[in-house]
Amino acid sequence: MNLPCYRKLIRFFLLTSLALALTGCGSRHNDRPSGLAAPESAFLEAGQAMDWNYDESASMSEKKSADLAGYTPDTPAAAEGSGIERMIIKNGTISIQVGDPAAASDQVRAIAAANQGYVVSGSVYKSYATDKPEADIQIRVSADLFEKAIAEIEALVENPGKDILSKRVYGDDITDEYVDQESRLKSLEAKKAKLEEIMESAKTVKDTLSVYNEIADVNEEIEISKGQIKYMEQSARLSSISVQILSIPDPIVIAGNEWNPNDTVRGAVNDFINTGQDFIDALIYFVIAALPYLLIIIVPLILIFRWLIRRGKRSKKTAAPSVLNDTDKPN
């Protein structure tokens, strides 16, 4: 066999072996059981399932943000444009003087009850400055009957021009605050409804608890807003009146300038007698209470003083003869 033929046989043998090997691999791949998915497809399906579960749990906050993104609270300007009635709290203070403050205080209580109101506080006491009774009372009446109640309190005095000491009526417009609170309440209720929808679609316990806590916080804010609205409505329906009730002061009596000599003489005699009595009383007190002590102190001092004087005179007499004797001696 020559060399070219030998090379052709080797090439043929290699090609035949390669074809058989490829045919065997294809048959083993096709013989895989139908119940088992290919590794690549199984991995892809698992990845898709994992990605879906992750989006469902981890993006719950994003979902809430997306659901609440379309929610916009009502603005006060829009609420004001709805034609709401102005809400004004009326209040007043009045100071009066009457003959009997305690009786006037009872009448003010009756005025409060007659005008669909009640007494907030009240007290009757005696003034330290005038030693006369006074009273302070605060009442609330229906806002529609506020002017009527003020007029009835003014009617308690005898002379309105003099006995009504002061009066002040003022109002506080709370319309803007009321509108703001109503808008806030609507916004909170809308937010609560959105959160409840999100809670129904929550898939995990963690998401459910998170949304539940937010709903609890919103409920607390809703209750606070409702309480403030109720307080403003009650304040607008009832007006406050503070009443100070003083006693009418005693009239001041001014003495006349008439001159009466008899009264002057009588007053002078009385002053003379009173002065003499005071002098005699002082002298008696001096003799009885002070003089004994003075004698105890002064008498020894006088005796000592006299002894000192006598001693001085004796010393002078003894010194005089000695001087004379010295002068009589011859030089």
Rank of each mutant, 00 (worst) to 15 (best):
I89T: 01
V169T: 13
I215W: 02
S127H: 09
D131S: 15
Y125I: 03
D163G: 09
I215K: 00
A149V: 06
A129S: 14
I153D: 00
D180H: 07
A135D: 00
M199C: 10
L209M: 13
T175V: 03
Y170K: 03
T208Y: 12
V211R: 09
A103V: 10
A135L: 00
E214S: 13
K206C: 01
D172V: 11
V119R: 02
N213Q: 14
I88H: 03
R86F: 14
T93M: 08
Y128I: 12
E134C: 09
R168Y: 12
V141C: 07
G117K: 05
T175N: 04
D172Q: 14
K206P: 00
G92V: 04
I88E: 13
K186M: 09
R140Q: 06
V119L: 02
F146V: 06
L188P: 05
S142H: 08
E147D: 13
V98Y: 05
K162S: 08
V119Y: 01
N91D: 09
E177M: 10
S105C: 15
R184P: 02
A202W: 11
A110K: 15
R140V: 07
I215L: 03
P160M: 05
L188V: 08
D163Q: 12
E197I: 08
A104Y: 06
V211L: 14
I164P: 02
S121R: 11
S127C: 09
I150L: 10
A143N: 15
R168C: 03
I139W: 03
I137N: 01
A155F: 11
P160V: 04
T204E: 07
A193L: 12
V108D: 04
N115H: 13
V157W: 03
V179G: 04
V124I: 02
Q116W: 01
R140D: 01
V120H: 06
S210K: 13
P101K: 01
D163T: 09
R184Y: 02
E189A: 14
M199H: 10
E158R: 11
E134R: 12
Q116S: 13
A104G: 05
R109K: 15
A155Y: 03
E182Y: 00
L145K: 08
A190V: 09
S166M: 09
A202S: 15
N159F: 11
Q138L: 09
Q181S: 12
K167A: 07
T130R: 05
I96H: 00
A143P: 07
K194I: 11
A102V: 15
